[in-house]
Nucleic acid binder design. Sequence first.
DNA 1: AGATGGTTCTATATCGTTGTAGAAGCGCAT
DNA 2: ATGCGCTTCTACAACGATATAGAACCATCT
Lengths: 336, 336
Amino acid sequence: MPATMRDVAELAGVSVKTVSNVINGYPYIKGATRERVETAIAQLSYEVNVTARNLRRGSTGVIGLALPELSLPYFAELADSVMDAGHRAGLTVVIERTRGDRDEELAVLTSTWRSSTDGLLFSPLGMTPDDEPLIPDGAPIVLLGERVFSPRFDHVTMDNIEGARAATARLIALGRRRIAAIGVHPGEAMGSAALRFAGYRAALAEAGIPDDPRLHGATQLWHRPSGAAAMASVLDRGVAPDAVVAFNDALGLGAMHELQLRGYEIPRDVLLIGFDDIEETRYARPTMSSVDPGREFIADTAVRLLRERIAGGTARTPRLVTAPHRVVDRASTTLG
Amino acid sequence: MPATMRDVAELAGVSVKTVSNVINGYPYIKGATRERVETAIAQLSYEVNVTARNLRRGSTGVIGLALPELSLPYFAELADSVMDAGHRAGLTVVIERTRGDRDEELAVLTSTWRSSTDGLLFSPLGMTPDDEPLIPDGAPIVLLGERVFSPRFDHVTMDNIEGARAATARLIALGRRRIAAIGVHPGEAMGSAALRFAGYRAALAEAGIPDDPRLHGATQLWHRPSGAAAMASVLDRGVAPDAVVAFNDALGLGAMHELQLRGYEIPRDVLLIGFDDIEETRYARPTMSSVDPGREFIADTAVRLLRERIAGGTARTPRLVTAPHRVVDRASTTLG
DNA sequence: AGATGGTTCTATATCGTTGTAGAAGCGCAT
DNA sequence: ATGCGCTTCTACAACGATATAGAACCATCT
């Protein structure tokens, strides 16, 4: 049986509340009393019962982080960052997986477990704007990723259009004009794919380069093998791209692998830049350039917004924060 | 304000305990009463306060899973499996990262957060057998991975020696004799590296093949780039291996990449098999053979042992469970 | 009629903590 | 000596659920 505050209080010869006060840093306590309590705590190796504290305080100190999958490196790394940010704020982060599936996403939103959580960071993938009314009003929620939903919620995102535009512009500045886009989702209007594609086209337009559909590599998923397949189909069309923008790093790594298999040398023959700036880009051969979406910033901001939302209730008007991105140049876009 | 049991009880005209009984499936309740309670619950959209329940019950329904990093695919996938297994058992799994660092591992073991958790699944990496006395006796713990520590704890592991032996034997059976080992940790005695290396040597010995140190690719980490580097250094020694055993899949993928860059064709010129059977092996080109360590089995068993340990206290003698492994043949070890 | 035993329900204490309200002690100005 | 304000501490009631013990009801058996 672990010791309780009552045990500590008895041993120290004070009231239970005084023990509580010592633990919570209440200022009006005599040094001698504090010491007696502290040695009693040490002697019994007492630890506060977090459950009881939570019940009394009416909060749990736990927030949820709902993600598609941990096996996608970007999400695994985002999870790491959010756990760090939460830790710094004294919060425990519980990861919940949705597999990017609409029904599992809705389940996370409405599960009983929500009530043992103070709030939720939610990165939707399968839900569409039509599903937005299904998100309950009660629990504090901060959305991550694309701004798919109505401005009913706090939201942290990056400027996908501008990021893709900058990445593409970088390739153009290095003299390339036949730039392939890997990861296009034909027909999509709101997701990352559509936004990044829009940025790609904007950069081409600015430079007066015609947009050649043969250079568009469509994929369903954004995994490595899809990147290789999309790259292969672009190459098979015979357009001989001299640069590639991949809409995430996994696609980029797949594309790079395919190019190398076919004897292209990167960066000499083909420049390549990805998106997300995952750890692996730094270990690829050659190291791969990428657009850093400000993962730490996103994690910190999301946790901060959620804490404010938890504290402030639903009164406060929802905010949209756009993380600063940065084009990271590595060997795959370095000439000479 | 969310509704409480008292609200439900008042609306249904019964006692609080009857509401509790309905919720917990207590059998002696008249159909009519149960219905009244259930409609009251629906009407108020009542949900039990898990914190209060936990306080009363003295448990939290939460277990921890301490892992080095989520960005290593094997651990991300293991986390997914453990979360599934926990979910099936009605437990919430909270992931805690240690970065494989001894001090962070010790911190996880002694943190205050332990007390708001029913138990811990712990995959140590940085701690050595010398640190074993530092693991506290109180909390229920099940260790995952190598059997580094004294048999004071429940333990779930795989037969690393036998797995590596079988993988190597498979390559030998296909007629190969110059088999490289990638991921060797010189001087290590207890970890996966040492055990898998022992299995590799056992297979060679059985087949009467001399163990050529030039075929040993040493690495510090078990990431993709280390695999490529170790493969490169083996190749640079001029021994021309005709097969490769990589001690995990990331190493294997790195090795494969290096071999392909140098113009070797897999499996024609070099056979290759990895360890862990991560998702990515199925998407590699060629698809990569691997030793499946029974991830699902490990996850299920670990959760089961932990639940039994939580229920049974410290009385029960610790158990060691070895997961059944399986050699998975894919294109990288398929000839013809 | 009374005892027996199973069903159905309730009042109350309890889990371990924190918030509220206020008591007691002290120094200092009146 | 009285009042005031500051410090230090305490008693007690919550938070919202579950466990215990037992009351009340009903049918059946002696």
